[in-house]
Design a binder for these strands. Sequence first.
DNA 1: CGGTAGCACTCGAGTGTACCGACTGCTAAC
DNA 2: GTTAGCAGTCGGTACACTCGAGTGCTACCG
Lengths: 336, 336
Amino acid sequence: MDAAERRATVLKTVVEEYVRTAAPVASQTVTESRDLGVSSATVRNDMTQLEREGFLAQPHTSAGRIPTDQGYRYFVDHFTAAGGLPVGQRRAVADFFATTHRALEDLLHETSQLLANLTSHAAVVVGPDADVVRVRTAQLVLIEPGTVLAVVVLGNGTVEREVLRSDLDGDDVARASAAFDAALRDQTLAATNAAHRTGDVDVDALLAQAIGAVATRAKQVSDHLYVGGVSRLAAEQDAFTTTATTARLLEMLEEQVVVVSLVRDLLDHGVNVSIGSENDVDELRDCSIVLAPYQVEGTLAGTVGVLGPTRMDYAQALAAVAAVSQQLGRLLLPPS
Amino acid sequence: MDAAERRATVLKTVVEEYVRTAAPVASQTVTESRDLGVSSATVRNDMTQLEREGFLAQPHTSAGRIPTDQGYRYFVDHFTAAGGLPVGQRRAVADFFATTHRALEDLLHETSQLLANLTSHAAVVVGPDADVVRVRTAQLVLIEPGTVLAVVVLGNGTVEREVLRSDLDGDDVARASAAFDAALRDQTLAATNAAHRTGDVDVDALLAQAIGAVATRAKQVSDHLYVGGVSRLAAEQDAFTTTATTARLLEMLEEQVVVVSLVRDLLDHGVNVSIGSENDVDELRDCSIVLAPYQVEGTLAGTVGVLGPTRMDYAQALAAVAAVSQQLGRLLLPPS
DNA sequence: CGGTAGCACTCGAGTGTACCGACTGCTAAC
DNA sequence: GTTAGCAGTCGGTACACTCGAGTGCTACCG
């Protein structure tokens, strides 16, 4: 093992130890926890160099080292090669997806909780962007006199519905329904084809109303964020500077839209792990995000992710999001 | 003003001051903030008596007094007579309900956030119990070959839907739909009338499937809890002993079911305000809950509530839940 | 007898000091 | 390049001390 290689091992050890104990790691701790065949003095020399290079930092002169964000980055890039989940957790995931047959919203919500439990961090599940999901079928149904329900089934298995008011009779609603389907089918929710007309003023009015409702709803729904395990954030308090930081984090998660666009943005750039200061958002300076997209029928359907302190078990988090996203995608395959 | 009356005023002042400043209230502070016409020495005597009677407590010998849970209880029972909301907030509530035309779930969720913003505490909105809501209309719709959608419109305006698998053709689905409606209409979701049969084995199978799905869904939906402003809990940290307490609170809110049954339980006993140790649930020992039911068409449709530290502005919280519940009930009136 | 003035007392919070121990950085030797 | 040893640094803890807020009590007054 040459010197550079050993330094990498030292860095790896520091990250692992720090994640485990939350305390600055001393040179001696490194030599004890891993047999490098060198003394603590040598490790100290390596550490000073790692510090010069920006991978480690010292909280104060007479303390051990802690990883910098750059240090975590190196760790993630070099030492987290596709590890599997421990069998216990693997089973938990399998069981969850085997026994569940809820409505999609509930499923996604519970999935976020599953992921939170697996990782002991907060977890998020993001639906697909509105301009990606295609409409499988669209329909208008006369629910009771005066009330029409617009139902849209999406490619990812979601069923969206919207209540409309209309005094048309059954036949007219049926005609509107056909036009509604024609206008939406195979389109994305973002770009509905509004050009369809039936010629009948009243029917067209209902049609326009329905398409408008679906369009506005599409935004709301696609930007929906399922958050699980927020309580973990409070438990991780100590990792964050102040309690105000936690409050702002929770606030951001409530806002949803910031997080959703952030997640999409990261994934668009092919980023799976975003560490501390790599995040542009201020609230996330002390946080890391670990993401994995899930696919339904080969197309991107959404993203699952973990949100925790930078001091996080990245290997485990990566394994967890990978396992969950894969299973989720499989479950969402439309029954055939 | 006789002595007993003055003591009540002292108690009132202590509660108000403590809520405002979060610091133990000294006898002198009382005389300064309210013109009682007596000296601080007299107030001190009153305070010792109030302490003997269990309304006040001293954190330590040389400190001012803080209210006990019993003290808050007296305050709530005697000094919070139906105050209105300040005009600014009143407007905010009116605006919110005037401009909103979302789907019910979103509305309830946003209502909880409104309430959280009004009170600066966490807020919850609980839907009605499944054995209270009646079905207005029920229908089965053939969405695409092989897929049937069960749609149920409820008395509170909610539309529930459930995706079913079935290979029946349009006519058979229509027959099943009629039977479905007959079985559910005007029933509560908890006690659906499963006795309806059409005679056709396949149709009855679909029917049974639909009714089953609705029944199981009913439980999930009715127990749903909308939580807003959880970030406030983190901000209120200091009011709670440890950060672990906050974590457990958040956990409980995620569990939902505990909170829902708790809220229902309180309201069943006609309790609108539950203070600190009055709560049986351990996590809520340092919290108070302020509730108001909302009604749709004269029948109980759900509950809105505020969850904050015992050190809470009860008058304001009561006014806020009252205003919100009233407006919410009005908005949910089925359009006619 | 209720109310008041005055005073001694208590106790938490803040401050200065000393000490301990955990680690490092450096130097000289291997 | 590695190591042993040692001086130096700095945070954390313990302790003593002071300050001041606020009380409880007692003696006194109307």
